[in-house]
């Protein structure tokens, strides 16, 4: 489990776009570096990200080693009714982690 910070507005207006921000504590080891002994450090990144709202998709992203350590993602979402944002990401070991945040539509 990696640490995740999700920021969403407390309340949003129906049908109006709002911004979501996400930080994930992950080294995003690029596979391009060598350690002090000259050995290649194996690649270890989050390579896939999907965000859904209730059951509809918001966006999906393929991430490559050029994404900075402790990845930051920000994007816009629209909601017609209160519900749950679900963010799922997968790392190079196939570990799947899911985080959620609730959204209140007024």
């Amino acid at each position: 489990m990696v640490r995740v910070l999700i920021s969403v507005p407390k309340r949003v207006k129906r049908g109006e776009a709002f911004d979501v921000k996400l930080l994930i504590s992950h080294p995003m080891e690029s596979g391009q570096r060598r350690d002090a002994m000259g050995e290649a450090i194996p690649r270890d990144i989050i390579n896939s990200f999907v965000c859904t709202y209730n059951d509809d998709e918001v966006l999906r992203a393929d991430l490559f080693p050029a994404i900075a350590a402790n990845p930051f993602l920000s994007f816009a979402v629209t909601a017609e009714q209160s519900g749950t944002l679900t963010m799922t990401f997968i790392d190079d070991h196939g570990v799947v982690q899911t985080e959620t945040a609730s959204v209140t539509v007024e």
Partner: peptide
């Protein structure tokens, strides 16, 4: 290749922000 993004019906705008190397 840095990033590929596809948007679904609940996206609020065709826009993405991130940090890259």
């Amino acid at each position: 290749h840095v990033l590929r993004v596809r948007f679904g019906p609940r996206a609020g705008a065709p826009r993405i922000a991130t940090r890259i190397r």
